[in-house]
Write a protein that binds this DNA or RNA. Structure first.
Lengths: 245, 245
DNA sequence: CGACTTTTTGATCGGCCTCAATTGCTGTGG
DNA sequence: CCACAGCAATTGAGGCCGATCAAAAAGTCG
């Protein structure tokens, strides 16, 4: 259902089967769970079959399904959603280096549905392997703890936004937050449709579209084929704090 | 505000009557972080000064303050809030056996303001002690991980509720959730004011009051001096799923 | 009992949703 | 290269839900 994107965007390069499956050369190894592990352990882990290139729109796992693996995202963007009352709520956006699905370690099933918003490269980590690493390398627990804490903070921020701010302020805050993840570039990918942005912020397509269009009209943001540029962060900042008009 | 609190803040000194400060006899030891520890370690930990009895309304720590300790709640209810746009959002309700403030382990500061909603008994755990336990007893990390995962799920549920449901459904869902925590009793304490319920659910005092009054009129709930009884869980369940009227 | 706070109820307003139609974009096939 | 189909995004009109403003009623505690 995805694919407004003409280009694979963030992909390191290959569409094709040519993946670099060597953990030692993994571009996100240091920031990943394995950053904490000794190099020789990482070498043992090397299992080409566990590296996957998936197309945009692909569902990687589903809410309530039995969990067999956690994933580290090497490239692309993934949404984690849960469904209530027939409505989907995006609870987290996964970007490069993030871990997802690790809740399977504790509960045995996934808490979300994970869907690729762009073509993605993921590293699949079977739960039993993760369990073993956890036992053999206590340091791994620190890494997991840090991941969990970061996830908790993200969701708390989301609840705070949705619970306290109105539509325009939520959208402005989200754009600023998102730009913070790609701060090094002038323009940044925004692989969320209006519908998905709404599912994240607890708004309808139309409301998101209206405020987005408004921001563009005022020159606060530019948008072109799935990429945006923040033109006036100050203004967005003010709006996100409720000083509208 | 809650009860006007005559007392200072983090006073080590227990105000009330003599507490049973022995960890070995602690009613929540098995469910607490210490449940994982060998008994002889727990004995060493025994430090009477770290057990506190605090009055309702007491602020235990504040958002952004440097964190010196985590806490286990032995008895009572505590709200964890964050502030945005001048509005408070309750992000979690802490009940017996829950741990709070452990984020200080990783970030060095608290992510919320913790306020007692009832008189509470807490067990104070200095961060350095926790760090040491973490190093010396890797099993402790499992306990922490489980706590973090549970907190994450709670907040995700909150975000899901606020993001996808309307007022009446949110309130009904909350009442059911809350009754789930005191399932063994027929009537259960609800130590949240209408204002606080609103801060949790992203609603105003008046909206909460209106729906609450409505539920009572219909006989779905009874309320008497801070305690409620769920009379018709089925009906509330239906409402929480959007099948109103 | 009397002062204060909290809750309830009413009336009105505004923001966001809903329904509906138009415009714009992207990829496809003639 | 253009026409067209199929979506996504935009824009408009109207209605409902919940916020806001205001006041009365009920509960709490000295």
């Amino acid at each position: 259902m995805r694919t407004p994107m003409p280009t694979p965007k963030n992909s390191i390069e290959p569409l094709g089967p040519v993946l670099d499956n060597n953990c030692m050369r993994c571009p996100v190894r240091e920031v990943s769970l394995f950053g904490a592990l000794p190099l020789e352990i990482v070498e043992q882990l090397n299992n080409p079959a566990e590296h996957q290139l998936l197309p945009s729109g692909q569902v990687i796992y589903r809410e309530d399904a039995a969990s067999d693996a956690a994933y580290t995202l090497k490239d692309g963007v993934i949404k984690l959603t849960r469904r209530a009352n027939g409505k989907d709520q995006i609870l987290r956006l996964i970007t490069q280096g993030d871990v997802m699905g690790a809740e399977g370690l504790l509960t045995g099933h996934y808490n979300h549905t994970a869907t690729a918003l762009t073509p993605v490269q993921v590293c699949r980590l079977p739960i039993p392997v993760l369990k073993r690493l956890q036992d053999e390398h206590p340091i791994m627990n620190h890494a997991l703890l840090a991941r969990w804490a970061s996830a908790l903070q993200q969701v708390e921020n989301l609840a705070l936004e949705i619970g306290t701010k109105k539509a325009g302020a939520r959208l402005a805050a989200f754009l600023l937050y998102w730009s913070g993840r790609f701060g090094h570039e002038d323009s940044l990918p925004l692989p969320l449709s209006r519908a998905e942005t709404g599912e994240l912020l607890g708004l309808t397509i139309e409301t998101v579209s209206r405020f987005f269009a408004d921001f563009k009209r005022r020159g606060y943001v530019k948008e072109k084929s799935g990429r945006i540029t923040i033109m006036d962060a100050k203004a967005l900042e003010a709006i996100s704090q409720g000083q509208s008009h």
